[in-house]
Amino acid sequence: MSWAGPHTDGSGPTPAELNQATAEIAALLGELLGEDVVMAIGVEPESSLVADIELESIEFVALAEMISERYGEEVDFVAWMADMDIDDITGLTVGALAAFVAGGRRP
């Protein structure tokens, strides 16, 4: 799945922005699942939200809502999700989510 943010120069988020977004998503996962659970699993960019982190579908929806609340209109989660089917959503990695978040809120 390709990252699609609002940039016009064709560049994606920088590694620093990606790292920051990954850390923020890990923090939201900690809030959702408990810090101890997230520490035990380990959240890496290549971690699959469903297969590795074992998010249940209802928890994924809660995470999506947390991201939407955290970043507001900077990230259009609905438009991003609308183009995905069930397999796309269940195949999402932390890195893909971070790229979306980092890209969506760049100036």
Binding site: E56, S57, I58, F60, V61, A64, F77, V78, A79, M81, A82, M84, I86, I89
Partner: peptide, 14 residues
């Protein structure tokens, strides 16, 4: 609610 979130909700929400 996730069964709707994963299927109809986001496309319809546009």
């Amino acid at each position: 609610l996730s069964s709707f979130y994963y299927t109809l909700a986001n496309p319809l929400a546009k």
